[in-house]
Design a protein around this nucleic acid. Structure first.
Length: 866
DNA sequence: GCATCCCGCCATCTT
DNA sequence: AAGATGGCGGGATGC
């Protein structure tokens, strides 16, 4: 098969034997030079003739042609087209949508390298996500709308539109003169970093459950194709005539500003990449090639022909997450919850210092052990997946943190610029229905349209906002970088990670925006227009003012009030408790680190609080994620922590990931909920649930380690545990086994790795947490069940819900689990987690109970840190 | 001659 | 160390 399928090579080389050594040789030779190729072709022809055998004969003729096949036939765009034809636009998530790079490369008869190019671009649009080494999961266009909406928001936040204008002007100016190099002068000075930072700016926007895994990938340099692709798309989404010329795009993408001149080489390289990306985008029918006639002449450009309208973030989320839609009801509840959460956030609560609990240490140990087990565990593939997931966790966590920070910022600053709309909606959460997803908490903050969060923060910052603290927070987080965009969408908040890479001292720093601002300034300089950043700054201010001006906090507060106060109170109480526990417990060293930082940070108490909250949330999330991969979770956490330190003023440089928090947590939610219900039965409502759950949830599990009960979950990761749990869940052991297996394997592949992914959304989590009712539904929806490692406190767990392990198990199983009731609870909790927001909220809520899982992270963290 | 962009070397990351 | 990824830019191809 292979040979035949492989066609070209086979044919050429071995017309006779496709695979024969000879053929290979021929191939090599042909590759050597055109002349040789020609000869080869001729030969091949002959061969072909002989071989005629090849079914592909046509192609054979083509063989010659093959050799010759024009580049067009080998173009990335065509290749991408072939690739896309192999998968449905909207794959059934329930199915295995695994993509094996090797298989694809073989089937398409191309080198792997080419596949990477395609995958990177598709990944940037969240059409695929890496599930493991050599493995991707196909999502098709199911998340495309959401992704585009997010990218648009991000692009707006970054003021790409302005940048483009500036560059265009600059180019025009230059044209008049000599492209001279004069400009450089200005620029250089302006932004030392600009260049680099600009690059840094790149950030990868992640969707809720999808990409975490990429984490490992991310580790690389996030620069490149992936990020470049997103930025490129952003340019289209923010430019008015949706036409972007290559040179302008290249300049923006190079961080350049001025520097542009610096390297023509760099520019050339960038253009090359843009062509690569453009080819894929063209095959996706998102852009078309056009020419812009400039004064000088024609310039290559691309026009956006993809969707123009995206659902608002909120909408997107809803629409996007099919699962979510299911839980709308839940969402509503959530909204209320969110409000509460907001309130919490806003509330000056006490700060928390994060300290570890002694118990945590134990947990950590156990966790480590679990990890080992897991790692060693059988299904290598699975493991890989797991590991991946764990890796991904980091990113996830990071994202979460970022999101949290962002949210906080938004709330405080009310920046939430982009989201504005959403924000408004959110604000009303009480009304609630909107946000279902998650965004919960965060968004609301934003309020009215704050435009760029970043900007806001930078500018308005501290002083302006009482909330100002928020700003700080971001900064703190900034280390991480998290910039949140949460509000933007109603639902999904996304977090942007900035890479600390280069430290810029920016006062502004915190939010990405600041970085942007910087950039913009640079540009301006170049342009020569207004000096420096003021322009941008002004804009920002104005924007922020106009949009966000109002105090977010205020708004939120009211909302909260509106929402059920009781709930809020309860939540708060819980959060507090939770926090306390968590704080103490939080395993991750980073968390610890963070704490101090946060505390120290200028933000002040208020800020710290928010930070803490965010952290907590964050932690929770992590925990959740962690649970699935206990290990992973930890590490990630670590990563997260980082933020704090950096926060400082560092900067927020650009690079980061944007992670939208999606709500969709398909999987676990439903199941979880169900299980919950079953287990808790009594606890009908969330409140109850929270509280009871823990206890309910298998006390046994709880074991010594408080949080750890989750551990059980851990085990889940480990096959044995999992099995047990599964049993619990599903009475049928065999089924369980299957599940476990699936989980192992599947998980890794599908959601698994990221259990959190599955969890999708925070929303779910939040739902579960917050809303008693809704939550469950969501969980059920998904077929997956999460097993969480436990959180010390039962209840909290639920809130945060760290899913320990995700089972791809069938829903039935999920549901069945009752037996597992206890365990389930824990699971539930975890799963729920997802929604960072929820977590956030809860934290805000002060759910003390949650404490939980921290330990795990700690372990991870520690290790990883090391 | 310039626009495109394939190809694959080789640095990085992971495992 | 081997394998997986993917940055990067030479240089071929097309117009």
């Amino acid at each position: 098969m292979g040979p035949l399928t492989t066609p070209k090579k086979g044919r050429e080389a071995g017309s006779v034997d496709p695979w024969t050594p000879t053929s290979n040789l021929k191939m090599l030779i042909s590759a050597a030079s055109p002349d040789i190729r020609n000869r080869e072709k001729e030969l091949c022809m002959d061969n072909d003739g002989r071989e005629g055998v090849d079914p592909t004969q046509d192609t054979d003729n083509g063989e010659e042609s093959e050799k010759w096949i024009s580049r067009k036939d080998k173009s990335l765009g065509l290749l991408c087209h072939k690739f896309l034809s192999r998968y449905p636009d909207c794959p059934n998530p329930a199915l295995n949508n695994d993509i094996c790079l090797d298989d694809v490369a073989t089937e398409l008869n191309v080198e792997r390298r080419r596949i990477y190019d395609i995958m990177n671009v598709l990944e940037s649009l969240h059409m695929v996500s890496r599930s493991a080494k050599n493995r991707y999961t196909w999502h098709g266009r199911s998340k495309l709308a959401q992704t585009l909406a997010i990218l648009k928001q991000v692009g707006e936040e970054h003021r790409y539109g302005q940048q483009m204008q500036q560059i265009r002007q600059r180019l025009l100016d230059k044209e008049f003169e000599f492209d001279g190099e004069e400009k450089e002068n200005k620029e250089v000075v302006v932004d030392p970093d600009s260049g680099e930072q600009g690059q840094r700016e790149l950030f990868f926007v992640e969707l809720p459950g999808v990409e975490f895994k990429a984490a490992s990938v991310n580790s690389r340099k996030d620069k490149s194709l992936r990020v470049m692709s997103q930025k490129f798309v952003m340019l289209f989404l923010v430019s008015n005539p949706r036409v972007v010329s290559l040179d302008v795009a290249a300049k923006i993408l190079i961080g350049e500003d001025q520097g542009a001149d610096q390297d023509k080489n760099k520019f050339k390289t960038k253009v090359r990449r843009l062509y690569d990306i453009a080819n894929v985008l063209r095959s996706l029918k998102l852009i078309e090639k056009v020419h812009v006639t400039a004064e000088r002449g024609r310039k290559p450009a691309f026009e956006w022909v993809g969707p123009e309208e995206f659902p608002q973030v909120k909408d997107l989320e809803d629409s996007t997450s099919e699962c979510q839609s299911k839980n709308k009801g839940i969402l509503e509840s959530r909204s209320s919850v969110e409000n509460c959460a907001k309130k919490l956030f806003s509330s000056p609560g006490a700060k928390r210092s994060f300290t570890r609990h002694p118990s945590l240490i134990k947990l950590a140990k156990s966790i480590q052990e679990d990890r080992r087990k897991i790692n060693s565990a059988p299904s290598s593939p699975v493991k890989s997946s797991l590991s991946d997931s764990s890796n991904s966790d980091f990113p996830n966590k990071m994202a979460q943190l970022a999101a949290i920070c962002k949210i906080q910022l938004d709330q405080e600053s009310g920046t939430g610029p982009k989201h504005q709309k959403p924000a408004a909606v959110r604000v009303e959460p009480t009304s609630g229905s909107m946000e279902p997803p998650q965004a919960p908490s965060l968004t609301p903050t934003q309020e009215p349209g704050v435009n760029t969060t970043v900007h806001l923060t930078s500018h308005t910052p501290l002083a302006a906002l009482p909330a100002g603290s928020v700003a700080y927070i971001p900064a703190q987080c900034s280390s991480l970088i998290p910039v949140l965009l949460p509000q933007q969408r109603g639902g999904g908040p996304y977090a942007v990670y900035l890479q600390p890479s280069s430290p810029r001292p920016n006062p502004l720093a915190r939010p990405q925006p600041s970085s942007f601002a910087v950039r913009s300034m640079t540009f301006e300089d170049k342009t020569g227009q207004s000096p420096t950043g003021q322009y941008s700054l002004k804009r920002l201010h104005s924007d922020s003012v106009s949009e966000s001006s109002p105090s977010k906090a205020k708004r939120t507060d009211p909302n909260f009030k509106d929402t059920s106060p009781k709930l809020c109170e309860i939540l708060q109480a819980r959060l507090k408790a939770h926090r306390a526990s968590q704080l103490s417990s939080r395993p991750s060293p980073r968390a610890l680190h963070l704490d101090p930082e946060f505390v120290n940070t200028p933000g002040g108490a208020a800020v710290t609080q928010t930070l803490e909250q965010s952290l907590e949330t964050f932690l929770d999330r992590e925990d959740k994620t962690a649970n699935s991969d206990s290990e992973a979770g930890l590490t990630p956490v670590r990563a997260v922590p980082l933020t704090p330190g950096q926060l400082n003023t560092e900067t927020l440089v650009p690079a980061g990931y944007l992670i939208p928090i999606s709500q969709q947590s398909f999987i676990s939610d439903k199941e979880v909920q169900v299980s919950w219900r079953e287990s808790n039965k009594a606890s009908t409502q969330t409140y109850n649930i929270y509280q009871t759950p823990t206890a309910g949830s298998r006390p046994s599990l709880a074991q010594e380690i408080t949080p750890t009960s989750i551990r059980l979950n851990k085990p889940a990761t480990a096959s044995p545990h999992v099995l047990q749990q599964a049993h619990r869940l599903n009475s049928p052991s065999p089924a369980i086994l299957n599940f476990t297996l699936q989980n192992l394997g599947l998980i890794s592949g599908s959601s698994p790795g990221n259990s959190f992914t599955v969890p999708q959304t925070p929303e779910c989590a939040s739902n579960t947490l917050h809303s008693p009712l809704p939550g469950p539904l969501a969980l059920q929806q998904r077929g997956m069940v999460f097993i969480k490692p436990v959180s010390p406190v039962p209840i909290q767990q639920s809130v945060n819900g760290q899913p320990v392990a995700l089972f791809s198990v069938q829903q039935p199983l999920m549901t069945t689990p009752k037996g597992g009731g206890l365990p389930q609870h824990s699971f539930f909790h975890t799963p729920v987690q997802l929604s960072p927001l929820a977590a956030m909220v809860t934290t805000g809520g002060h759910l003390a109970p949650k404490t939980v899982y921290i330990p795990q992270r700690k372990l991870d963290v520690a290790t990883e840190d090391s």
